[in-house]
Simulated assay, not measured.
Amino acid sequence: MNPYVLTILMSSLGLGTTLTFASSHWLLAWMGLEINTLAIIPLMAQQHHPRAVEATTKYFLTQATAAAMILFAATTNAWMTGEWDINNLYDPIASSMTIAALALKIGLAPMHFWLPEVLQGLDLLTGLILSTWQKLAPLVLIIQVAPSTNPAMLTLLGLLSTLIGGWGGLNQTQIRKILAYSSVAHMGWMIIISQYAPHLTLLTLSMYLFITSAAFLSLKMTSTMKITTMTMMWSKNPILVSTTALALLSLGGLPPLTGFMPKWLILQEMAKQQLPLTATIMAMAALLSLYFYLRLCYAMTLTISPNTTNATTPWRTKTTQSTITLALFTTAALGLLPITPAILTLTT
């Protein structure tokens, strides 16, 4: 892609997200979400491959539907209350419709069906943007709307997302689909705590950004797309495979890695809110996710590639890709647990 065009598209992505962050009016927030969507569509379709075009079309139709629902809900709320302020979403119908639309935008269950298919059709860097940056603006709106929303609806969305995100990834062999279901599960953790402790939602989102970026960039470095290809990674780059396996375990929330921190704090907060059953279900759902992360780690580190394999043997040449960003994200994904008190002090 032309560097000038790429610069404009990336700037538009930043502009759309910043506009939604800074807005207190529903029309401005909607406009920011639309700029965001329109900026990523050329990035998704740049490969000129039928699978990428199909994924782009699915994404566009889904986001257009969600944007129309948001606009309709905001108009309904303005009709009922006379205000366009984001924090004054007091009409129950408008509030429920807004949460449903934002859940569709970020791929919360049961509106998650588009996410694995879309992510499967993209290259890893565009998939990284879709899994991280594109979740920021809708999540901030959900945090703002959560106090005026029915708590049972948010709890149901969170529980369904963690369960379906864990269950759906069990029978996948394509790594991008596994990461898509991982995203669904992590969004469920963020949504369920947004009504009780919004700062924990932001903390979980930050940790998710670090760990997912490390995982995507590691897989991009080794050009790995499916589990069978993972069996040949160890002989090519043992150190990178070790850090990739640890990043995946961190996504699963295994101590003493960074990913354990948000799950631990969320379960602690839910216990304080007298919700032991919900916390137990969330913890059990995390075990489902941990299973398929362990399966990926097993394929990478504990198996030897057979002589007859369907995957193409990668060339053992030195990569020309920059590793500084990957090193920073990997460090954050593996070593932030000891400074949890400092991070909590900064976020509260």
Rank of each mutant, 00 (worst) to 15 (best):
L179Y: 12
S12T: 05
A197T: 08
Q172T: 04
A55S: 13
L154Q: 06
A29N: 06
L115M: 14
A180D: 07
T244L: 15
A299T: 01
G127Y: 09
A94Y: 06
S182I: 10
L125Y: 10
S218T: 07
L290V: 06
S213I: 02
L122E: 15
W133H: 13
N88Y: 13
A332H: 07
I191Q: 07
A29M: 13
P276G: 01
Y291K: 14
Y196A: 09
T7D: 04
A332C: 14
W84I: 02
M221Y: 13
H186K: 02
R295N: 10
T309I: 12
S218V: 02
I106V: 06
L154D: 06
G121H: 08
L9N: 06
S131D: 12
S182C: 14
T323A: 13
M232W: 11
T319G: 12
T162K: 10
I343R: 03
A311W: 08
I343D: 00
A78L: 02
M31S: 15
E269W: 09
L328H: 09
T155P: 06
K263S: 06
S95L: 02
L102N: 01
G158I: 10
I41S: 06
Q274P: 05
N171S: 14
I142A: 06
M261E: 01
S305R: 10
F216L: 00
P338W: 03
V118Q: 09
G168C: 04
M300T: 02
N307Q: 09
M232V: 02
T348R: 04
L61M: 03
F260H: 00
M153F: 15
M190N: 01
L170Y: 02
G121K: 09
G335N: 13
A52G: 07
T308G: 05
R51Y: 10
G32Y: 11
T98G: 03
T7L: 15
I35Y: 11
P306C: 01
L115D: 05
L202K: 01
S24T: 14
W189V: 12
G16N: 11
F292A: 06
